[in-house]
Design a protein around this nucleic acid. Structure first.
Length: 783
DNA sequence: GTTCTAGAAC
DNA sequence: GTTCTAGAAC
């Protein structure tokens, strides 16, 4: 079995892929190492592979595979300057070998002069032609990265470096291995190497290699027995302990994290440091919550980070994660500085968690101080914009502005502040050894953290999906649509449209006959056409009628937004399709005759149109209006409408992204009113600032902030499961007391509420964070 | 959906 | 006296 046979460990071969222009000395390098004859090496050279003549890449791959099968180490002696040229070799090698790169990044001048001088070169690249070829190749050069699947990369910039590298590989006996990481880069890259060396500090200088002043290329031998204190992912990258981990070689976190479709959260252990939470108990909770989360969510990776090799929490978690068979591709531990995961650890973690304090202030030492320091003022400002305090068991996402050093240097796009329970009597709110409560709070903290992370990840994935769907559907769009994806000024455009609409509206408001003007209802003709005087009668009761099944299970009604469960006794309605007042048909008219409303339509497809809400209840408030005939409200939606609902949802997400403005970390919700006032199914895409003069009364507020508002994601899920959406259509919902949608505080009237929400920075309730209900619109800044 | 306004609340 | 709500009309 994997890892059981120490002999097998000893013979694990190396695939060394040389990277360098003609004349850089690749062949010489191979010959020098092979001359020492300390392990069986085979040199695969494309220039000679076909019976001494130039062959194909396939032939090289075949020969390499055969050599590896015989447990021989191989040199891939071809230029390999571009990633694509190396990829197949890496793929082949990493299943059975440690894949290294040797970059002979010598000055082009030197390579050219060697090429020009040489005679009888295998590749027949001689004379004056060489200069042009070398120059061209150098231009296309892509230096190898760990993320390609290498577990070790050595850069040689001059002949001295080459000599040292040769010595390192000469010293590599059959049972030796070289440490993982990047070696030999100068200037800023030196840090990379340092970091790697730091967390691989158990390396030893191998026998037969004299100590070298350039430790970067000094060969080192890793302890062959499980070096638990080493960073797991890199350790695994080249571990010799068996095939299960061999699988992992070259497929390190580094590689996967850098892929667009993979999102990685690095997080410190919460509460186990200064807050003195019992490590044994904490490790149980971490593994439990992690396992649960990873069962639910794909395309994400979690990395628990601690500074010390001696970290007890890391070893406990590692052991428990292994016991629980948590996928080691998705959950890893790492020893290192969470603020230098990329530069020192070679890891790409787009999201990091911070063990914050309740005031969300910098300082205090530990991870919190380090992250605030590394992220600079940008994080402080962004944090203040988002939340002022945090309660234990909660977390809050802060999109990290692109001017933050942590963003620029480490590629971190979001910091999630988390607050766990405090067990330290020296600190505020100590739980006095109450591990029942403490355990709950810690579990909540991790759950909140991971859910927040997932919502970021979802947004990113949605972007991708939308890009695809845009490509597919763009041909179906009308000519007059405003392509938000292309036009960054479109925001203004749509506002202009709206402004124009308001002006039109204003004109008609002068006409006492038509006081109200529904959203998007614009031309005079249209108004007249639809009988402003009112041909149909709408009673109060009919405005709340809905043709949905009243017998649904009330227990399934989500009440997360409510302080108390509201019953539906006051529901009026039911039996027949409601009648719509003339003013209530405006959206319907637009949907049925979009060609007559080109001036308000921002975007159009066969399935829906997008327009600004004429009376926006927030800074950004748009409608994605279904064009399906007969689909008046959410109550009418059935399984057959799922493709439409999903397309509308996707359009809504796209809008949320495009509507991002620099001065606000805008968050959106996408959803439907349980009982809409206007005919024709329409999805609200509304920013959560609710900063608008049009938000005037209790009904406005409650229709967007109570369970009356049905999140699109939930609606889709419910229809998928049960064939219809749950409607929370109790009138009481709209008459409820006015409560802040963030901190849930109650306010006596709308003006007071509005002045409160203008300043409330409390993080959004976790119920909104779940299931992607809250959409982050600042991804553009983060990208 | 909005507007208007009487009268309640402060 | 002023602010705010809620019902009615559209």
């Amino acid at each position: 079995m994997a890892g059981d046979d120490p002999q097998a460990d000893k013979t694990k071969p190396v695939m060394l892929i040389l990277v360098g222009a003609p004349g850089s000395g690749k062949t010489t390098f191979c010959n020098d190492v092979m001359s020492a004859d300390r392990r069986p090496w085979v040199r695969i050279c494309q220039d000679t592979i076909a019976n001494g003549k130039a062959g194909t890449k396939q032939q090289c791959l075949k020969s390499a595979a055969e050599a590896l099968k015989d447990d021989k180490s191989v040199f891939i002696d071809r230029c390999n300057l571009e990633q694509e040229q190396r990829a197949d070799f890496v793929k082949l090698g990493r299943t059975q070998a440690d894949v290294h790169a040797m970059v002979l990044n010598l000055p082009a001048r030197l390579c050219i002069s060697r090429s020009v001088k040489r005679t009888g070169h295998e590749g027949n690249l001689q004379g004056g032609k060489a200069a042009a070829v070398v120059n061209r190749m150098m231009q296309k050069k892509e230096l190898p990265k760990l993320s390609e699947g290498f577990c070790r990369i050595t850069f040689c910039l001059n002949e001295k470096d080459v000599k040292e590298a040769v010595d390192a590989y000469i010293a590599l006996g059959p049972s030796d291995s070289l440490p993982s990481g990047i070696f030999g880069q100068k200037s800023e890259d030196a840090k990379v190497q340092l970091g790697i060396m730091k967390f691989l500090k158990k390396v030893e200088i191998p026998k037969n290699v004299p100590p070298n002043e350039n430790s970067q290329v000094s060969a080192a031998k890793r302890e062959s027995k499980g070096d638990v204190s080493c960073s797991m992912e890199l350790e695994k990258g080249c571990n010799k302990n068996g095939t299960a981990e061999d699988e992992f070689c070259g497929k390190s976190v580094v590689g996967d994290c850098s892929r667009d479709d993979f999102h990685t959260l690095a997080f410190p252990s919460i509460s186990t440091s200064d807050f003195q939470f019992n490590h044994e108990k904490a490790s149980d909770i971490i593994t439990e919550v992690v396992a649960d989360f990873l069962n639910k969510v794909d395309n994400v990776r979690l990395i628990l980070v601690d500074l010390s090799h001696k970290s007890r929490i890391l070893s406990l978690v590692r052991a428990k994660a292994a016991k629980k068979h948590i996928d080691s591709n998705k959950f890893l531990t790492h020893v290192g500085d969470i603020t230098r995961l990329h530069t020192e650890g070679g890891l790409h973690c787009n999201v990091i968690a911070n063990a914050a304090n309740w005031r969300l202030k910098p300082g205090g030492g530990g991870v919190n101080a380090a992250i605030f320091k590394a992220a600079g003022e940008a994080l402080e400002i962004a944090t203040k914009q988002h939340a002022e305090t945090l309660s234990p068991g909660n977390s809050v996402v802060i999109p990290l502005p692109s001017n933050s050093p942590l963003h620029q240097r480490e590629g971190v796009t979001h910091v999630i502040h988390v607050l766990g329970p405090n067990m330290n009597p020296q600190r505020p709110n100590c739980l006095n050894n109450d591990y029942v409560q403490g355990g709950k709070v810690l579990r909540d903290a991790y759950t909140s953290l991971f859910e927040n992370f997932a919502s970021i990840s979802r947004s990113k994935l949605n972007q991708k999906i939308q890009k695809e769907s845009n490509r597919k559907s763009s041909t179906g769009y009308s000519d007059n649509r405003c392509d938000l994806a292309k036009d960054t000024t479109c925001d203004h455009t749509s506002e202009n449209v709206q402004k124009a609409k308001r002006e039109i509206s204003h004109e008609y408001e002068k006409n006492k006959k038509c006081k109200g003007l529904p959203s998007g209802f614009d031309s005079k003709d249209e108004l007249m056409e639809h009988d402003c005087v009112g041909s149909s009668i709408r009673s109060k009761s009919s405005s709340f009628s809905a043709k949905h099944d009243d017998n649904r299970n009330e227990s399934s009604v989500p009440t997360s937004m409510l302080e108390e469960k509201v019953h539906t006794h006051q529901k009026i309605s039911e039996e027949s399709k409601r009648s719509w007042g003339s003013w209530a048909q405006a959206l319907h008219q637009i949907a049925m005759h979009p060609e007559k409303h080109k001036d308000v339509i921002l975007e159009m497809s066969d399935e829906f149109v997008v327009l600004n809400d004429l009376y926006p209840k927030a800074r950004k408030h748009l409608l994605v209006l279904s064009r399906a005939s007969g689909l008046d409200t959410l109550a009418d939606a059935r399984r057959e409408h799922l493709p439409l609902l999903k397309a509308m949802h996707s359009a809504g997400l796209k809008l949320a992204e495009k509507l991002y403005t620099d001065d606000a970390f805008m968050m959106f919700r996408l959803g439907y009113h349980s009982v809409p006032s206007l005919q024709q199914l329409h999805l609200h895409v509304i920013s959560q600032d609710f900063d608008s003069p049009h938000l005037k009364n209790k009904k406005h507020w409650n229709s967007f902030t109570t369970a009356f508002f049905r999140d699109s994601a939930d609606v889709i899920e419910e229809i998928e499961k049960s064939g219809r959406a749950t409607l929370n259509d109790d009138e009481k919902l709209l008459l409820m007391e006015l409560r802040c949608h963030r901190c849930k505080s109650a306010h006596p009237n709308i003006p007071r509420l509005k002045s409160h929400i203008a300043n409330c920075k409390t993080s959004f309730p976790s119920s909104l964070i779940q299931n992607g209900r809250l959409v982050f619109a600042s991804m553009k800044a983060a990208a």
